[in-house]
Amino acid sequence: MRSVARRTGRGAVPAAVRRLLTPVIVVLLWEGLVRVGVLDRRFIPPPSVVLATWFVWIFGRGTTISDPYVGTWLSSARDSAVRVALGFGAAAVVGVALGTLVGWFRAAEDLVDPLIQLLRPIPITAWVPFAIIFFGFYTMSAVFLIGLGAFFPIVVNTTAGVRQVPPILVRAARMLGTGSGEILFRVALPAALPSIFTGLRLGLGVAWVLVIVAEMVAVKSGLGYALWNSYYYLRTDVIVAAMFSVGGLGFLSDRILVRIAAHALRWAEAF
């Protein structure tokens, strides 16, 4: 009923146009307000300037050595993406493995779960000084923070998923002659897959938050570093371009993960 009403109401306007309308209006309004002087361009750069800066940052040739925002975007983006990939990858491997054990074996739950629950409420940002002292101002600091931050949602969701494996499926497997170890891999893990992917998505989101935090304070490269450094130069145009860069990469990586999940969970009733 609802979709019929929507179609008849706005039949002439294609979906893509409808959905782009609001962002376009906001950007035009933003540009206009800066141009007429309602917004101070020293603090808020107009979108046209941000785009130009972004373009130079990505495609510019390094003629002026003094300007770090000419043609350096790709290496910054790559640095950040590599840290996210390393930290998230490690968190995924450890989180899924540990979460499965904690969810399945009582002994593992007793041994490991209290420690996880003890550490989990500590905000990851509170680990920053420790990370710098331990790993120094290097990539390892960032990878550690990202890994730790992504680990918790992954391990918690994996544990929940494995705990919620329908007992009747375990019975079915046992009655078909499946051994307990085999049941872990052939029943518990696949049954927990929807929860595991939920954890991975949450973890990936946290990873992009933390790469920026880490690069602002603990590492001297990447998009987070560019973001923080440009603040010292009052390059608000770079700040905005960097913000959208991080947002774009985060969005892209989430889409990729969702694609993978949609394929891996094509059997699930609702995903």
Binding site: P166, I168, L169, R171, A172, A173, R174, M175, L176, G177, T178, R186, V187, P190, A191, L193, W267, A268, E269
Partner: peptide, 28 residues
């Protein structure tokens, strides 16, 4: 213990939802 000498057919089917028909039948 349960064993493949006694096959159980459950009211709720208890099929493995991540496996196809063929894979479910191959399971045991």
């Amino acid at each position: 213990r349960p064993g493949p000498d006694r096959g159980v057919v459950f009211q709720e089917y208890a099929l493995f939802p991540w496996l196809t028909v063929q894979q479910n039948i191959e399971f045991g």
